[in-house]
Structures are given as structure tokens and as C-alpha cells.
Design a protein around this nucleic acid. Structure first.
Lengths: 221, 221
DNA sequence: GTGTTAACTTAATGTTGACTTAAGATGATT
DNA sequence: AATCATCTTAAGTCAACATTAAGTTAACAC
């Protein structure tokens, strides 16, 4: 995975470069807009991080320039500007995301991952013998296709994305149902039941465990 | 809450200053060691962020110098150096924490909060060979997973959080069971028994001692 | 628009297992 | 030895979860 960083502040460049390299990415940097444009035309990157204020060509124009030829590579703006107008301008110019400085490095990494997932479409989401194909919106168990409804799919995906971590009922309500207050009618149980039934989990394939009083946890065995 | 940042890289200074101010902190900056020392002597800060490599006086010496008069103010090193020796050197010089660049801004904020709370780092929850993994809601003993029920888990966590301190029966009832009046049916005993049995503590691993007439105490040996 | 269908939510019932209690056994302290 | 606190076991209670069914909403075809 190759990331291009276009940023002139040397401290931030170093910060990002070292951090992203430690995350396992290949990183190339450009310290002004025209250098960034040149690199973007002569190489194929998997993602581009763009500062707004840049020498020579500013980030907004650079973004537009890149998008003339390339509509696919995800572009993330990384900037201190954060008014609604600017956000809209950035997104209109073809950016995929917009992260406000100062940002958490973890957040940045998470967002980068999200873009790789969407772009490739088939981020490997697996749980034991179960495979999720986000691009086809399909669940496979031993190469057999299983049809899940929207919510079932979202819930299962959520659990697998958080594989190995306990998901509390409140977290699930918040992240899957967007219910931000404490109110549980038992929806989760119904859907867990449906998922388990459809996946036809045997005793020895107890991938989704119930943690009584807390929530659920998914795990390969 | 007033934070002093001693750092020479202007990009990082801006990044930190803006971020911390948005978090509601009052921020003062110094771009070299002697300026930092001067400020530290003439003002009272609630926390000091220190770069290792600094012009005029380096971070390590500055830390020692500050500690001559002031042993209380938390000092956090913020540095690219991360060998064990350097960490030890930093901590020996009187630093309270050590964050490696590049760091997540969220992490930094969390750590700052921790220092304001207790001036004590949030250590991993371990007890001898036993490790508690809150995210998995699991207890590990020699890499073997042990399943505890909710209450067992809470009780054990509570004892470990108060490692080295005696927990009276009343405190336990209050903090784990939320029973605020004096009423003991013997629940604690039952759960202590269950925990000890599940953890299968040998005589030489007597991590949880009974203090007759008072309560219990957890301790690494 | 109306009708039909599938998905989602709510509610009711069944089942399980965690928690509590209490009572007898064990061990410590005097 | 007598007493008291703690340990251990077992049984009853209750809350959480699983399951099913019925009600509600939203999507789609016509």
C-alpha cells in the first residue's frame, strides 16, 4: 500500500511518515503542490494525503488537478481549515475525506483503512470458515452463499470488524442502530438469533459468544 | 489547567498548542531548554511536556533541573527516542511518562488526563502470572483463557486495581455490589471461592490473601 | 395511488445460567 | 476445647438471553 503525503510543514511530514511506515505503509512525500502533482501523474498511489495550504499549488487546486485524470485514488484532506464552506469545497473538488488538524493519528489510520476497504471492496472480513464480501454484499460459509438482510449483515460485519473485542449491547445499539440513549427492546437478541440460525453454527463453531450482562464477542477458534 | 510545552519543532508545537487549547487547556510554549527552565522557575504549571532533543539545554537535563525544586508537577517526555535505556534515563530523571513520537493526539490527551487524575499511569491489570484483558473480557493465566462470570470478573478486577491494599468486606460490598449498608450474607465468600477455584491457585501462588476479620488483599509475590 | 411483500421492531413466552442465600464443614484464634 | 470467621456446597430465585409470533413500517411492483 503506497501513500503519498503532500505537506509542507516538516514536523507533520516526519510525524506522519514515521507513523504510517510503522503501520506498514510505503510512504512518499512531497513538500509542495507542484511536486505533489508531478508525483501523482507519474506514479500510482493507493491513497493521497493532502494539506490545504501548500506552496506553489494549493491543496484544493491540486486535488482538482489530480481528479482530471484519476477519479479513483482516495484523497484525504488534512487541514486546519474546518468551516462548512471549506469542507464542501474540498469534497466538491473530489476529496473523499476531510480530517481536521490537530487530528489523532489513530483516527487517521482508521480512516485510511476505511478507504482501502471501500476501494478494494473486498477487505478480508472473515470469521472462522465464514467470509464476508462487502462488495457483493454476500456472506460465504464453506463457499456456500448465505443471504442476510441489511441489518443482519451490518451486525455481523460489525462484530467481525471488532473481532476479539467485546461489543457491549450499548455499543452495538449505538454503532449499528444509531441509538444513542439507553433503551433496549431486545432487537439485538432477535438479530443475533437470526444470524446464528442462518449461519447454522454448530457447537464446535461457536464463533459468536454471548457474554452475559455485557454483550457479544466474535472470534475465530 | 496550565500546560507548558518545551519543544523546538514549530510544526509540532502548533499542532500541540492548537489541539490542547481546543481541549480546554491553557498552553504556554518554549522553543528551547533554557527558555523552558526560566518559565518553569517563575510560573506554576500543572503539567510539562518535554521534547528530548532541545537547543541550549537538552530535555533530560532540563527535567533534572526542574526536579531539583519541584517534585510534583507531572513531566511527560515527548520524543522520538524509544530505547529502553533512554526510557529508563528519562524516568530516572524524574519524568512521569514517556510518549514516543509519532503519537496519537488522543492518546496524549488521555495520558494528560490520567496525570491530572491520579498522577499515576494506568498500568495493565496483572496479578502474578494472571493477566486481565478488559477488551476481551477474559482472564489469562499462563496464556490459558479462563472464563469468569460478570461478578467474578468485577470482583477480581477490583482486587487487582487495589493491589497491595486491603479491601475490607464493606468496601467490596459497596464498590462491587453497590450495597451501601452493612449487610453481609456471605456472597463475597462464595465468589472468592469461585475465583480461587477457577484460577486454580496453588499454595505458592497465593495471590489473594484473606485477612481475617477485615477483608482480602491481592498481591504479586 | 394501491396492494403486496419483505424487513424490521416490539412484545410475549420459554429456557438457561448467574447470583444469592443459607447451612454445614473447616480452620483459626483465644 | 470453645468460639467465631471463613470456606464450601447445594438449592432456590431471578434476571438475562433465546426463541417465537405478531404488529409495524418501508420498499417495490403494478
Amino acid at each position: 500500500m503506497h501513500i503519498l503525503i503532500v505537506e509542507d510543514e516538516i514536523g507533520i511530514v516526519q510525524f506522519l511518515q514515521q507513523g504510517l511506515q510503522e503501520e506498514g505503509y510505503l510512504v512518499t512525500t512531497a513538500n509542495d503542490g507542484s511536486k505533489g502533482f508531478e508525483l501523482s501523474q507519474n506514479h500510482q498511489y493507493d491513497l493521497i494525503l493532502l494539506d490545504w495550504m501548500l506552496p506553489k499549488i494549493n491543496g484544493l487546486d491540486l486535488c482538482k488537478a489530480i481528479r482530471i485524470k484519476d477519479q479513483l485514488t482516495p484523497i484525504i484532506f488534512l487541514t486546519a481549515k474546518d468551516t462548512v464552506q471549506e469542507t464542501i469545497a474540498g469534497l466538491k473538488a473530489g476529496a473523499n475525506d476531510y480530517i481536521k488538524k490537530p487530528f489523532s493519528f489513530e483516527e487517521l489510520v482508521e480512516r485510511i483503512k476505511v478507504h482501502f476497504r471501500h476501494r478494494k471492496g473486498n477487505q478480508e472480513l472473515t470469521l472462522g470458515t465464514i467470509k464476508i464480501d462487502l462488495s457483493k454484499h454476500v456472506v460465504l460459509k464453506n463457499d456456500e452463499e448465505i443471504t442476510l438482510t441489511q441489518r443482519e449483515f451490518e451486525l455481523l460485519t460489525y462484530l467481525i470488524e471488532n473481532k476479539g473485542k467485546v461489543c457491549t449491547r450499548n455499543q452495538i445499539l449505538k454503532d449499528v442502530w444509531d441509538i444513542n440513549f439507553e433503551y433496549d427492546t431486545g432487537v439485538i437478541d432477535v438479530f443475533m438469533n437470526a444470524i446464528r440460525k442462518k449461519l447454522n453454527l454448530k457447537i464446535e463453531e461457536d464463533y459468536i459468544k454471548t457474554i452475559r450482562g455485557i454483550g457479544y464477542i466474535a472470534n475465530d477458534l
